[in-house]
Design a protein around this nucleic acid. Structure first.
Lengths: 208, 208
DNA sequence: CGCTAATCTAGAACAAGTTTCAGAGTTGGC
DNA sequence: GCCAACTCTGAAACTTGTTCTAGATTAGCG
């Protein structure tokens, strides 16, 4: 029914792919200004030179659109990180460094971050597949940073908590209820879980 | 400007207090059925026998209304918990038990939980004061469960991460992306942070 | 009581997300 | 090149959150 950029569904023609790209671009640009509220479906359609009905065929709701926008941004981030991997000594350090780097990227476009994160947490069941994709990509980024051959089940559990912390801390920062320092502390605290409770002596300390 | 039930602002007359109560009651009832979407301002106003404009004078937006509803529910929960405190031996156990108990309470009214949590995470800056109140009450509940005389800074940091985990896990459960077992595991994982990385034999003992 | 300011009501009006529909344009298969 | 099926467009309509207005009610006060 829906076109969807996901590989697997009917492949898009070049023009369709271009439309999809224009839409995502317009979405990100509008979000970069006023945040969630500034992404108005009529304006996105106009900016992407597409009819409103078409926009809705590509993305069945504003939330779908913004979650897709987030997938896009995450991909870009992941690529960047692969090019310059984190340098910490322990897995915990590398994860914390990676997340803080992602965080600084979001800081540069706080309005865009606002739009994407609000969409993500506001998403209801009808978007759960897409949200899940975002979640899986986030997990992949964290696991990449850990650089472990065989993460233990406990470490995987730790990754889940870290992700929760990351999302929630982001939300509190975006709504002005936590400072950046606080976010960093929260992330570092959660990352302590990676090295496990036996962490003798060594405690997370800022790399560099 | 706004009436607000918060003590401090102009005291409400009995009729106003009654209106406020009717509104919150109607809100919770509607949320208990269809969740966030079912809480429609016109319907709340009608059910509470109040004009739409009055509803907006008491709660300046749907999100404000639902966050206030959450404050209400949290108060009730906190009272219940005080009556029957958690019984675990370590602070971590008691916190996990408390949160799982809260979680079961929410499970009984998943639609209501959905409405409240969605409102909470969707809230923008204009609601941050109210959201902060909710957050502080949650913190109080957790600290109560820990029953520590002097929580260390690290333990306070752990509480923050636990709260993040709690919120975010709730969101993923509500959107059908995590099972209850998974939520429990996540909460228990986060609670491991309380007992601290030095987890040797005995640690934070209950002040009892 | 009677006055004045604040509050409440009913209802219209507005804004933005979403749906719908008729007609024009594309595409893929033959 | 031509047809059938699908896609896109433009515009109107519908829904629900939010705002506004004019007139009724109520509360506080002398």
């Amino acid at each position: 029914m829906t076109v969807e950029g996901r590989p697997g569904s009917p492949p898009l023609t070049a023009r369709q792919e271009a439309r999809r790209r224009r839409i995502l671009h317009a979405s990100a640009r509008l979000a970069g200004r006023g945040g969630f509220d500034a992404v108005q479906m009529r304006e996105v359609a106009e900016a992407a030179e597409v009819a409103l009905g078409t926009l809705y065929r590509y993305f069945p709701s504003k939330v779908h659109l913004l979650v897709a926008t987030m997938q896009d941004q995450l991909d870009a981030l992941h690529a960047t990180l692969r090019r310059r991997p984190p340098a910490g000594e322990s897995a915990a350090e590398r994860v914390a460094e990676t997340l803080m780097r992602a965080f600084r990227a979001l800081q540069r476009e706080p309005q865009l971050a606002d739009a994407m994160v609000r969409a993500l947490t506001f998403a209801d069941r009808s978007v759960s597949a897409e949200v899940d994709t975002v979640s899986r990509r986030t997990t992949a980024i964290i696991l990449d940073a850990m650089r472990l051959e065989h993460p233990t089940p406990q470490q995987l559990a730790a990754v889940r908590v870290i992700e929760h912390t990351w999302h929630s801390a982001l939300v509190t920062w975006l709504s002005g209820r936590a400072s950046i320092a606080q976010v960093r502390l929260d992330i570092e605290t959660a990352c302590r879980l990676i090295d496990g409770p036996e962490a003798a002596g060594e405690r997370p300390r800022a790399a560099r």
